[in-house]
Amino acid sequence: MKGTDRWKIFAGLFVFLALAALPFWYGGWDRPAPVLDLDTPAIRQLPERRCVEATAFMRANHMTLLADWRDASTRDGRRIYVARDGREIEASLSQTCLRCHTDKTRFCDRCHDDAGVSPTCWDCHVVPEDRRESATVTHRQRGEGGDVSPFPVDVAAREKESRGPGPR
């Protein structure tokens, strides 16, 4: 191989790598992580600031957890999730998650926008701003479903008396 050819190859490689790394140049190397708003009234009232599972687990695995919730509640009719610490929580995106994380734009969307993902959950599941827009009826106002506990008043505490022996 002649010396001049080698120069051309390396120049071409350099240009290719620079172009392939364009997203990094474009977005910056050390962009700050998105800041999530955890200061909602519901979260402020929590006795212990703990999500369904530990924060690190939720950050990494919430999508898997939600998919498991979806399959268990829809396909198997098992709607109560027993967390690692034993709390029993209604497996529901809109009834459980959104009770605390009331503002989707300041919580869910911050990371999803940053990561460039667009989950289709909200096409069907009703988010709080949709409630404000067009919905005035809530279960509580209609006098039914008022006994459905908002997370984190866990279902276990309510059902302790009524639960018989046997497997969960």
Partner: peptide
């Protein structure tokens, strides 16, 4: 990490 720990059960009110 996922194996073993958490689980699901039906609502006793069902």
């Amino acid at each position: 990490a996922w194996a073993g720990a958490p689980g699901f059960r039906p609502d006793v009110r069902a």
